[in-house]
């Protein structure tokens, strides 16, 4: 028997729909090592990732959000009770600190998408200049253009990220910004926002969108603080594991 873990809390959680876990399993909140863990009891080591199970995981974490701000676990965490107790015991200090940081906060997500006509891509302007060049020259020119374009895009992504951070500075507690996480995304940002500042956050973001109408935005939230939950790096550095 393993415990499939949804999230961890530092206060009691009242779960209304106890049969809505992964695979239709019941959901319980149990006290362990001074924490409250929201779990389902499962037989399998690996819970299959399907649309239903993934949505169930998020649904349970969101339900816990009604009572408190939990630390969400990544999908698929199924461990023995002994392993979980050991984990909680070894990382108590980091977890308590993390709870203090995320208390009464939510995560808001912003992804900025590169426009399809690539107004951000200056290499396009030079595209027609050497169409009639010899194949070798054309290859080198294309290569150079790609390199210059990539550098320029990274620079512009940094500039946009800087502007976004400056705009949101007063209304967010923490931020995680990734520049160009994929080819079509300029930046992916996660903001930790106090629940009381959510409206102000949305106003500031709307203002930023108006300032940069050429950019496409995908905004979502509020989320449980998935992006601000992990303490793994601190643990590894503490124990010198590499």
């Amino acid at each position: 028997m393993r415990l499939y873990i949804y999230c961890l809390a530092d206060t009691l959680i009242h779960l209304e729909n106890s049969g809505n876990g992964v695979g239709g399993k019941g959901v319980e909140s149990v006290e362990l090592e001074e924490f409250v863990v929201v779990i389902s009891r499962v037989e399998e080591e690996i819970v299959a990732a399907t649309r239903e199970t993934i949505l169930a995981h998020d649904r349970v974490v969101r339900a816990a959000m009604k009572d408190t701000t939990p630390l969400p676990f990544r999908f698929g965490t199924a461990v023995t009770q002994e392993s979980l107790a050991s984990y909680l015991n070894a990382r108590r200090k980091s977890l308590v600190e993390r709870f203090a940081e995320i208390r009464d906060c939510v995560e808001m997500s912003v992804k900025i998408i590169r426009p399809t006509d690539s107004q951000l891509d200056p290499s396009h302007a030079a595209m027609s200049t050497l169409d009639s060049a010899k194949p070798g020259t054309a290859f080198l020119v294309a290569k150079r253009r790609a390199l210059l374009g990539e550098e320029s895009l990274t620079e512009q992504a940094g500039e946009i990220a800087g502007q976004l951070s400056a705009r949101m500075k007063g209304v967010v507690k923490r931020e995680q910004v990734t520049l160009q996480p994929t080819q079509k995304l300029v930046i992916a940002a996660a903001f930790l926002v106090r629940r009381s500042d959510e409206l102000e956050y949305k106003r500031e973001l709307a203002a930023f969108r108006q300032e940069r109408p050429e950019l496409h935005f995908l905004t979502s939230g509020p989320w449980p603080p998935y992006s601000f939950a992990n303490i793994d790096l601190e643990f590894k550095s503490h124990f010198g594991v590499s």
Binding site: L8, R74, W223, N230, K236
Partner: peptide
């Protein structure tokens, strides 16, 4: 969010 982020138990 659910697949890429969140606490991970390192065994």
């Amino acid at each position: 969010h659910v697949l890429n982020r969140g606490l991970v138990i390192a065994g």
